[in-house]
Design a protein around this nucleic acid. Structure first.
Length: 646
DNA sequence: TCTTATT
């Protein structure tokens, strides 16, 4: 299949690419480098365990910023692990306390396994200092095993395998922080009796690595001449080493199937035989195939793995060479498309997407031999007019990538964020956090400000609405955040709410006033909030009041802008388009500005390329808006108690 | 008788 056909055809979802690191404000609180924040990984959870179960447990030891149980994107089923984020400002040791006191705590009969959350998977993957422990007495539980091994050093993770009834399977894993501690423990504890059984302690070896360590002495050989029998084969192979058995596969009539097996005493003998047989001349003929004999299952796995690797490689290869072209004239076929793009470099393949009747669907793909040619073609051809209509040209995103992006939208499941204790709730709890009010954004808002709130484009503490008509007199803005005080003082919680609902209540609560008032959501606000801002960066330019200019931009003009700028510019346009969709095709019961702002922010999670495609296709945008709106509805993100429809 | 992972 060509790269292009491949790109067009349906593909199973591929692995998600690695996420970029979240910028985190650096705070030196004297904690070890491997735990700069109060984030814990909590694993081995029953599927039923959710945030509401974890909160009371963990809040006993300290103030919690947020808890998130990770779930399957589609089914929303728990993946059996969670992140618990403690407020390090209020107590830098709370996470450590949780580790010391809550590890192996039974939740629904399963012992939770707590570790420091580490973004870097390498230590987990390469497994240095990891021990496999077997022949464990069933009576030994997690705490007991931990007690036994912790004598030799810090343990980063320990687990005893259990069956569905939480009964020990008699083996487990003890991962030390330091490899030398693991070694000491192994030497001291291997073969030592515990509860009447000698413990077996050995380095942990992953299954894949283990099978290769198994003795491989059996040589598979094919393309044998038909007249070669066992005796002859043995004769040929004696020079390679000591043979324990020879077998040639035969059909029911006893005729050779022309392949067989020779088993040697040692692996190295088998290896020599493999090399030698490939060059062997039998009756003047060459061309034997020889290899280690692998069990059927292993072979199937190997083939599968190779296939996956090949496919992955193909994906990688075409990722930056495959150009997506949209808004082609109806009569444009493969030949014309190729002609159009051939000035930019060698083209491997072209394809105009068509219906089953062969009618152009108005878009296509051009796969270049080189990524730089693809890049040139994009910059030269995007927005050039063909028969009066500007083309849209960008890198093609593979279907599974696009699907993943849509899935990611659904994944924007908001962590349950818990307010500090010892404080009267201004509104019912738990309350889900609106999408873009996470603490990092908030933090940046707070820090941006010597000179007024970045999100308040009027530059003063008054009303920050920029919609030019409604001001704050409109109804139903709910604005609430839970955040960490950037000044590092005592945990501060601000629940702020501006609303004039029909009951005439206006509730506003500020426990400790932030340095700059935070205003409600309007277009540019939503856009700005969606883009995390580097705390150390200089304050962004504050635009003139009322200047909600929607920049006219081209893909080329965006190139020179920073990623934040690109998103801001696109976001402004996107906001208006989304607003238009709500005015024409989608209805919402929520305040228009708020819902548009939130959805703009959600969609801005996509890549710039994807966004450019999106703002050019009202149809796709509408689909995405509907999906995002449904998500908001289903997660109850929007204000709902007493909120009046707009 | 050979685990488990990112908001």
């Amino acid at each position: 299949m060509s790269e292009i056909e491949d790109a067009v055809s349906q593909q199973p979802a591929a692995e998600q690419p690695a996420q970029t690191a979240t910028p985190v404000a650096s705070t030196d609180l004297g904690v070890a480098a491997n735990r700069p924040n109060g984030s814990l990984y909590v694993g081995n959870l029953s599927p039923e365990v959710d945030e509401q179960v974890l909160y009371p447990l963990f809040s006993q030891v300290g103030q919690i910023n947020s808890i998130r149980v990770c779930r399957d994107v589609i089914s929303r089923r728990s993946l059996g692990y969670a992140y618990v984020n403690f407020n390090v400002q209020s107590d830098p040791s709370s996470a450590q306390k949780a580790l010391d006191t809550l590890n192996y705590h039974l939740l629904l009969n399963k012992p939770i396994r707590i570790m420091w959350s580490s973004r870097d998977p390498t230590s987990r993957k390469h497994g240095a200092g990891n021990l496999f422990v077997k022949n464990l007495a069933k009576s030994i539980d997690h705490k007991e095993l931990h007690r036994i091994f912790s004598e030799f050093g810090d343990i980063s993770s320990l687990k005893i395998s259990q069956d569905d009834n939480s009964v020990s399977r008699g083996y487990g894993f003890v991962h030390f922080k330091k490899e030398e501690d693991a070694k000491k423990a192994m030497e001291a504890l291997n073969n030592k009796d515990f509860d009447g059984k000698p413990l077996a302690v050995q380095p942990f070896v992953r299954r894949d690595d283990r099978s290769s360590g198994r003795k491989n002495t059996n040589v598979y050989v094919k393309f044998l001449p038909e007249n070669v029998d066992e005796g002859r084969l043995r004769e040929i192979c004696t020079k390679y080493g000591e043979i324990t058995s020879v077998k040639i596969e035969r059909d029911e009539k006893g005729a050779s199937k022309k392949f067989g097996y020779i088993n040697f005493k040692t692996t190295s003998e088998a290896e020599q035989a493999i090399n030698g047989l490939k060059a062997e001349t039998i009756d003047g003929q060459q061309g034997l195939y020889a290899a280690f004999h692998e069990a059927k299952v292993e072979r199937a796995q190997l083939i599968k793995r190779m296939g996956e690797e090949k496919k992955e490689k193909r994906n990688q290869d075409s990722a930056d060479k495959n150009v997506y072209v949209k808004f082609l004239p109806e009569n444009f076929d493969d030949t014309k498309l190729k002609e159009l793009f051939s000035p930019f470099g060698v083209i491997n393949s072209v394809k105009v997407a068509t219906t089953t009747d062969g009618i152009s669907r108005g878009f296509g793909f051009v796969c270049f031999a080189s990524a730089s040619d693809a890049s040139t073609a994009i910059s030269k051809m995007n927005r050039t007019k063909i028969e009066g209509k500007p083309l849209h040209v960008c890198l093609s995103q593979r279907k599974e990538v696009r699907i993943n992006q849509q899935a990611r939208l659904g994944q924007r499941y908001i962590p349950t964020v818990f307010p500090p204790t010892g404080y009267n709730m201004p509104f019912p709890w738990p309350y889900p956090l609106p999408p873009f009010y996470n603490q990092y954004d908030f933090y940046s808002v707070m820090h941006n400000n010597g000179r007024g709130n970045r999100f308040n484009h009027h530059g003063h503490g008054g009303r920050g609405f920029r919609n030019g008509g409604r001001g704050n007199g409109g109804r139903g803005h709910a604005n609430r955040q839970y955040f960490t005080n950037p000044a590092g003082q005592k945990g501060v919680y601000q629940g702020q709410r501006n609303r004039n609902n029909q009951g005439g209540r206006t509730r506003q609560q500020t426990v400790q006033a932030p340095s700059v008032p935070v205003e409600a959501v309007v277009p540019a606000v939503a856009v700005a909030e969606a883009v995390p801002v580097d705390v150390a960066a200089p304050p962004p330019v504050v635009e003139e009041a009322g200047a909600v200019e929607i920049e006219t931009f081209t893909a080329a003009s965006l190139v020179d802008r920073s990623p934040e700028e690109q998103k801001r510019i696109i976001g402004n346009k996107l906001y208006l388009q989304i607003q238009n969709i709500f005015n024409t095709t989608v209805t919402t019961q929520y305040p228009l500005e708020e819902v548009c702002g939130k959805i703009t922010g959600m969609l801005l999670e996509m890549s710039v390329d994807e966004l450019l495609m999106l703002i050019d296709s009202n149809e796709t945008l509408t689909e995405q808006v509907q999906a995002a709106h449904e998500l908001l509805l289903s997660n109850n993100f929007m204000a709902n108690e007493g909120e009046v429809a707009n």
